[in-house]
């Protein structure tokens, strides 16, 4: 394969991926690095299933050109739990609040929520809803997801 090599850090580790110029970050992660936790729900920036954190910002990886990730620090769902496997408070809260059903939206939801809490440790309910508005979920009705983010925020800043 031709293409270019993009270098960035993923979940704290240096990575180099050979990509075609038209590849999205989602494709680079899923196909280049086999990090399949990020999902493609629409490929058009409309569902948030592909959300990852790039330099502190939650982005739709399905729209993000892979080549633009050069030098970036990326967090995917695979890197949210601690290295020893212990869950992040958000993950714990998602579980305990019943915020996971089919789970297809879950990785993206968790990362959108994480980007929010990293920036705003004590968000209002309105801020939570806004931060998650780009992440569609067809199973949960969002109620327990919002509760989970509130619970995690409380735990992390309490």
């Amino acid at each position: 394969m031709d293409g270019v090599v993009v270098r960035f850090t993923v979940n704290g580790e240096a990575a180099a991926v050979r990509v075609e110029p038209d590849w999205t970050l989602l494709r680079a992660l899923r196909e280049g690095l086999e990090l399949t936790g990020a999902k493609e729900g629409c490929g058009a920036g409309e569902c948030g299933a592909c959300t990852v954190i790039v330099d502190g910002r939650a982005v739709n990886a399905c729209l993000f050109p892979a080549v633009e990730a050069e030098g970036a620090a990326i967090t995917t769902i695979e890197g949210v739990a601690a290295a020893d496997g212990s869950l992040h408070p958000l993950q714990r809260a998602f579980l305990d609040s019943g915020a996971v059903q089919c789970g297809f939206c879950t990785p993206g939801m968790v990362l959108s929520a994480k980007a929010l809490l990293d920036r705003t440790p004590r968000p209002t309910e309105d801020e939570i809803r806004t931060a998650l508005a780009g992440n569609l979920c067809r199973c949960t009705g969002y109620v327990q997801i919002i509760e989970a983010v509130q619970a995690a925020a409380e735990e992390m800043s309490g």
């Binding site: 990090l35 399949t36 936790g37 990020a38 999902k39 995917t76 769902i77 695979e78 949210v80 739990a81 869950l87 993950q91 998602f94 579980l95 305990d96 019943g98 996971v100 059903q101 789970g103 297809f104 879950t106 990785p107 968790v110």
Partner: peptide, 15 residues
């Protein structure tokens, strides 16, 4: 909590 939740919440589940 849902039994398969931990797999889903860590991105391991294979769809």
């Amino acid at each position: 909590p849902k039994a398969d939740g931990i797999e889903k919440i860590t991105g391991r589940t294979v769809y």
